[in-house]
Simulated assay, not measured.
Amino acid sequence: MENDHLQNYLSDWLVKYELVHRSLGFDSRGIETLQIKVEDWDSIAVIFYVYGYNYLRSQCVYDVAPGGFLGSVYHLTKIQYGTYNPEEVCIKVFVPRKNPRIPSVFWIWRSADFQERESYDMLGISYENHPRLKRILMPESWIGWPLRKDYITPNFYEIQDAR
């Protein structure tokens, strides 16, 4: 019952601001997952922050399928003093693998800094307006995006000889 109330509340709230979204259901903890269009992500992120989702608990990225879309996942939490069970929501933004671009949320949630950099480093999503978007795990000379399902591992010795 509580999840139905929250789902209707979040959906109604997004509709109020004329922002298109799609509910992808609830996870095992009862947290709703919403799919957001990449072109609406800037606006929706600001609205969620203003509404009180003041903590980006995690941001990650995954390859949906070889040759398919890449998904960037954001877990937002509404942290308030004295609240034992804070509200949470999961947001998914999908982008094509050719020239994947998503607006950075670094300027809203500073905790996105290293998380967006890791997502860029491993799967190649460019987070627009991120102040330091560069590799964080792989060497700067690394070619490609190692966690993409269609990634072909380069010959290790070729990479060492390239220095």
Rank of each mutant, 00 (worst) to 15 (best):
R163L: 14
N85W: 05
K78G: 09
I47K: 12
V73R: 05
F106S: 12
W109G: 08
L34T: 01
R29S: 14
S119G: 09
Y84H: 10
R97N: 15
K134A: 04
E158S: 09
R29T: 06
V89A: 07
L147V: 03
L76W: 00
R132K: 08
M138C: 07
C90Q: 08
G52H: 01
Y74W: 13
S28E: 10
L123P: 12
N99H: 07
Y127H: 04
N8L: 11
I125M: 11
S111E: 13
R22D: 05
I108F: 14
W41Y: 11
D27P: 03
P154S: 01
K37A: 14
E18M: 13
Y157D: 15
T33G: 09
D4G: 02
K92A: 13
E88I: 01
G144K: 03
S11E: 08
S28W: 05
Y74F: 13
R22W: 08
I152C: 06
N8C: 09
V15R: 12
I102G: 06
F106Y: 15
L19K: 08
D121M: 06
Y55R: 14
D4Y: 00
S28H: 07
I159N: 05
Y55H: 15
L24F: 10
F26Y: 08
L19E: 06
P100E: 02
Y84C: 10
I102A: 10
E88H: 07
I44L: 12
D27V: 01
D161H: 03
L137F: 05
E128L: 14
G68E: 04
K16Q: 15
R110H: 13
H75Y: 10
R132D: 05
I91D: 00
I159P: 01
T77I: 14
K16Y: 10
R57M: 12
D113E: 10
P103A: 04
V46L: 15
I108Y: 13
H5Y: 03
R163T: 05
H5C: 10
F26H: 11
A65P: 00
P139F: 04
K134C: 07
N8I: 09
K92F: 11
H130M: 03
E18I: 12
Y55K: 14
W107M: 13
Q115Y: 06
